[in-house]
Amino acid sequence: MKMIEPNNKRLMAALLPLMLLGALNLTHAWQDAKSGYEFMTPESRAMQDDDFENPGMLTVDEGQTLFITTAKNEMTCGSCHGDDGSKLDIERITQYPVYSETLKKPITLRNQIHICWNERLQNPPMKKYNDPRAIALETFVRHQAHGKPVNVDIDGPLKPYYEAGKAFYNRRAGQLDMACTHCHSYFPGSKLRAQTLSQGHSNGFPTYRLANSKVNGLHERFRQCQHQFRAKALKAGSDDYVNLELYINAIGKGLEIETPAVRY
């Protein structure tokens, strides 16, 4: 109680602007964004850097196979995008999630893959957003933009969705009552048992996780995080997660795409 005695009022008045600044800082975009790569051990980095060692490359190959698999209407992804993906719009890949004029909402790269799958290839729809085939295709496609900076644009129609994503990032949830910000804004570099916390960027996704030995999409990772702090995980592809993906891409804008990265 000593802190708020009258003789300390001046001190409090001096501290208040600082505290407010701290509160604002809660929702900053990184001035010095660091890829999760920089928080990994040298061994894991070496694993990622070597295409023959990186287990995520197997999923890229799976994606490549699906990319040139002929649908009933005689089309493949390669019919439009080139069999090796060389006609893909690389600049566009770095911009996802983008605003869809037809759907009047943001869509992720994975959404776009589902749309092509259903409308262009006229395949039977994949029921789940995180169908392994969709993950494989996304991994292959985003791998084509390897080394290019994340370049999401939030100044246009995506602004309100970005704001919603930011609110979600800072909203506590679950029995442990944590938000993304608590680990990834406050404590990157600190240890959680043996695991080093990162800034939680999305530039490596879909990413190979050593923890579950498979390639995980971003929304699968959101679900794992939320499950861990004992929150009810939302559905992959849900509006909240799409908004969160948008926000996370925005705070990590400029980081080089590393798909498929190797992470803990």
Partner: peptide, 24 residues
């Protein structure tokens, strides 16, 4: 603003909590 979980908070105040932890 702490990250420290409240280990004995009134369980009615949790948001989006997993089913198996509801009310606990």
């Amino acid at each position: 603003m702490t990250v420290m979980p409240g280990y004995y908070r009134d369980p009615r105040h949790f948001n989006q909590v997993r089913k198996s932890f509801k009310g606990k």
